[in-house]
Design a protein around this nucleic acid. Structure first.
Lengths: 127, 127, 127, 127
DNA sequence: GTGGTCTAGACCACC
DNA sequence: GTGGTCTAGACCACG
């Protein structure tokens, strides 16, 4: 379900966060679904429990998941996206960087849009 | 010319690398142009010479710039982008992450394409 | 295991790189083996941690070693040599220089081939 | 006659030294031949006179060339190669490094010997 | 514990 | 003047 690559330069806790968000977007995880416990997930992906815990905490901070004390962790029921200026600016900066990199390895604008289209299709597989 | 934010979580040397690449793409820096010396740039942006040096060395490794022995550092004359598989995969992964983030703050596909268009226009200012 | 001569004109970080590559070729270091940590190696060879770090980063860039986040640095499992034109040209230039030097101190072609054979034997000690 | 690449990481004065030695080995320059003056050569190869001067001094130290005061610089008449232990050790170390590099970009022993043969043929063109 | 980044300040080779 | 290397010592993110 979640792929974690300890060789990647991306921190493992970030990989977990992104993996869970991706599963929610794809509809594999639905609002109200129970997530594996910290211990379960940490043994599934061979990671340190502290690392999984950090990811869950961050997801909870972002209100993507909810912890019900004693019952476990669940995909939030009423997640409302909020588009604040800061995150928009941030996204734009990151996107800009990627575009510059892409131009520098020789990709054209068309190839980039194709790539993005593919990513969108990939995300809608299960919806 | 190059803006560096020492409070950003992005390493300073990366900001330098990205800034220079951006200036080249925009046509502000042309092939053959001399870059400020390590010491000059380091004092311009209030950073340590070693930090600037690291950025220059990485840019040279990528063949974006060239150093002429004892004369200084210059924008490479014949930069040839080469699209290797690794960097492509990497780009796609980063793009995916950003798209997921964008969807999570409520952006639509159209808004994303708009944003990308704006970035492209921004990069062509001087071309 | 790794000999470093601080009086040599060859930079220390290069000596580290070459030493590790040699140990891998000889089979003293096997794929997956853990390398000493930056701090360990730096104290072993009486060098600054930054110097060792630089060597490790260059080896990682060449995909000779891999770092696992927070766990340490390891000999890469699946190293695939790739023969690009640049490095080939470079090798030939270096080889030419050495041959010229050798002829200048009076070595014959045969003596050179003998020397090379010896080097090959030396590298296969543990294989 | 002598090719100098200011982009190369090899110091220019070394390129001059190697270039002259190569020309002598090839027979393009014969014992007793006059070399261009420092000023002539420096303007021919677009280098700083000091750099050419340094190269000539080093060649003279190695007894490869001789300076006759007021007359100019000449290829030495009676150059005798001397194979001392130090330079042999040095050559072997350099050769070892190159061989390791070559193995690391995937060359086989045969390909290396082929490469060396080609270099020898190249050096004997004019003999 | 691990490696990654940065600073301050030094020395060197090269041009 | 230029960049390249090294040291000493600090701080941080990550697991």
């Amino acid at each position: 379900m979640i792929n974690v690559d300890s060789r990647s330069s991306k921190p493992i806790y970030e990989q977990i966060i992104d993996g869970i968000k991706e599963n929610i977007l794809k509809g594999i995880l639905l609002p109200g679904d129970k997530l594996p416990s910290v211990r379960e997930l940490s043994s599934m992906i061979m990671a340190n429990p502290n690392t999984v815990s950090k990811a869950y905490q961050e997801l909870e901070r972002q209100k993507v998941i909810e912890t019900l004390r004693g019952k476990g962790t669940f995909v939030a029921l009423n997640f409302k996206p909020k588009l604040d200026e800061d995150s928009l600016k941030n996204l734009k900066a990151q996107m800009k960087k990627i575009i510059i990199e892409a131009l520098y390895v020789g990709m054209t604008k068309e190839e980039m849009f194709d790539m993005i289209d593919k990513i969108f299709k990939d995300l809608e597989v299960e919806k």
